[in-house]
Design a protein around this nucleic acid. Structure first.
Length: 390
DNA sequence: AAACGTTGCAACCGCCATGGC
DNA sequence: TGCCATGGCGGTTGCAACGTT
C-alpha cells in the first residue's frame, strides 16, 4: 500500500493554481508570513495542502524571483555547478539568486542536457560520449569499461561519436596520421603550499596524447571539481612515480567547502596517490581499463607534479568551461599554456588523477584548427621539456 | 484545418532528515 | 526510544502551447 499524499487526506484542490488562489496565498504570506506551512491553507482560506502552498510560494509567488529566460552566464554557471554538485538543484539554486531549484532542474532537463549531448558530452557525468554499437545509445552512452571518449567540440556535422583508439595507438607519437588525441581527464585537485587553499588542476584541458603536447590549463575551479574529484589518500610509498608539470589554479578552501564536501583535509606537503595504484602496482593510475598506463610516460603515471601557481608570472587566459562547450577557446591559448608548463619549474606537490577521455583535434572548431602535421610537431616539441621532468 | 509530435514548465509524488513529544 | 508531523528535496508526470506534417 503506497503512502497517501497529504492532499488525499482531505478533499483538497490539486493542479494549476488559479489567480484567486495565488492572490489569497500572496496576501496571507505578505501579511502574516508563512509560519507553519500546514496551517497556511486554513488561515489563507485555501483548499490546498500546506505542501502545495509552500511550493507555489517558493516557485512562483515569492517576490524575489527573477523572471524570464536564463542568461548565457546563468546557463554556464549551472553547467559548472552541476559538474561539481550533480543533481543537487537546491544547492545550485543558492548560487543563482532569484532562480528556483525547480526552474533550474527544468532548464537542465529540457535544454542544457540537449546542448551538452550535441557537443558530445554526457550531461550526467560531464564526460565525453563514446561510441556505442547502437547509434541510438550514442546519445547518452559512456564507456563502462574505461574512461575514454571522444569530444566533438563542434557537435554539428561531425558524428558525435568516433572510435576510441587503443591506448597504445593514442599515445604512440609515431602512430598513423590522424591518430592524435587530446586527453580529457575528468578532474583532479591538489594541495597547494598555502594552508587555506586548495589548488586545482584541470587535466581535461591539459594533455595532448599521441605525438602531441598539452592542452590549456583551465583555472576555473568548478571544472576541476566534477563528479570524479577526489582527494586521494596519501601514500608516499606509491610505486607510480611519473609526473607532469603544470600550473595550478586555486580557490580558497572556504569557497570550496561551500561547493563540495571535502571530507578530510589534505596534507599540503606530501604526495598522494590514486587508491587503485596503492591497491595494485599494475593497476592503472589514469584509466581503470588500461593496466599498461601506470608508470611509463607522463601519461601513464598517477602522480603529477606541477609548479606553484604563485610562481607564474603571466597567468594564462581564463578559459571557461562554457567556452569549451561553445568551442570558443583559441588554440593560441592552448599553445600559450603549453609553453607555460614547459617554462615553469616543478613543485613538490603531487596529485592523483582518475578518469580520462579523449577528443580528436580534427574535431576542434574549424577556425581553431591548425594543419595537423604542424600542430603535432609543435606540440610535441612543447611537451618534450615536460617529458624530461618525468 | 486537423492530427500528431515535441517542448517547456508547473505541480505532484514519494522519500528522507529533523525535531518535538 | 519510537512515533509522528513537518519541511525539504529530487524525480516524475501532466498538460498547454507550439511546431510539423
Amino acid at each position: 500500500m503506497g503512502r497517501h499524499s497529504c492532499c488525499h487526506k482531505q478533499k483538497l484542490r490539486k493542479g494549476l493554481w488559479s489567480p484567486e488562489e495565488d492572490e489569497k496565498l500572496l496576501k496571507h504570506i505578505t501579511k502574516h508570513g508563512h509560519g507553519c506551512w500546514s496551517s497556511v491553507p486554513k488561515l489563507a482560506g485555501l483548499q490546498r495542502c500546506g505542501k502545495s502552498c509552500r511550493l507555489r510560494w517558493i516557485n512562483y509567488l515569492r517576490p524575489d524571483l527573477k523572471r524570464g529566460t536564463f542568461s548565457q552566464q546563468e546557463e554556464n554557471l549551472i553547467i559548472e555547478l552541476h559538474s561539481v554538485l550533480g543533481n543537487r538543484w537546491s544547492q545550485i539554486a543558492t548560487q543563482l539568486p532569484g532562480r528556483t531549484d525547480n526552474e533550474i532542474k527544468n532548464l537542465w532537463n529540457s535544454c542544457i542536457k540537449k546542448k551538452l549531448r550535441q557537443r558530445g558530452i554526457d550531461p550526467s557525468t560531464h564526460r565525453l560520449l563514446v561510441e556505442s554499437e547502437n547509434p541510438e545509445d550514442n546519445k547518452v552512452s559512456t564507456s563502462s569499461e574505461n574512461h575514454f571518449g571522444l569530444y566533438t567540440v563542434d557537435g554539428l556535422k561531425q558524428p558525435l561519436i568516433q572510435p576510441v583508439p587503443s591506448p597504445a595507438q593514442s599515445f604512440d607519437k609515431n602512430s598513423a596520421e590522424g591518430e592524435e588525441f587530446i586527453i580529457y581527464n575528468s578532474t583532479a585537485f591538489l594541495p597547494s603550499s598555502s594552508s587555506n587553499s586548495i589548488s586545482f588542476f584541470p587535466l581535461p584541458q591539459t594533455i595532448f596524447g599521441g605525438a602531441t603536447a598539452s592542452l590549456p590549463l583551465n583555472p576555473n575551479p568548478f571544472l576541476f571539481l566534477n563528479q570524479n574529484c577526489r582527494v586521494f589518500d596519501m601514500n608516499p610509498e606509491l610505486s607510480c612515480s611519473s609526473s607532469i608539470s603544470a600550473p595550478a589554479a586555486s580557490i580558497s578552501s572556504s569557497v570550496l567547502s561551500n561547493l563540495v564536501d571535502v571530507k578530510s583535509p589534505v596534507d599540503l606537503s606530501s604526495s598522494f596517490t590514486h587508491p587503485a595504484c596503492a591497491e595494485s602496482p599494475t593497476f592503472p593510475c589514469f584509466d581503470a581499463g588500461n593496466p599498461r598506463r601506470c608508470g611509463g610516460s607522463f601519461i601513464d603515471g598517477g602522480l603529477l607534479t606541477w609548479p606553484d601557481m604563485s610562481t607564474l608570472q603571466d597567468e594564462p587566459e581564463d578559459l571557461k568551461w562554457s567556452e569549451y562547450l561553445q568551442g570558443n577557446f583559441p588554440v593560441s591559448s592552448i599553445l600559450q599554456n603549453q609553453q607555460l608548463y614547459a617554462n615553469n619549474s616543478i613543485s613538490e606537490s603531487h596529485i592523483g588523477i582518475e578518469g580520462l577521455a579523449l577528443w580528436h583535434p580534427n574535431q576542434l572548431p574549424q577556425q581553431q584548427q591548425q594543419p595537423n602535421s604542424e600542430l603535432k610537431g609543435k606540440d610535441f616539441q612543447r611537451i618534450s621539456p615536460l617529458s624530461g621532468q618525468i
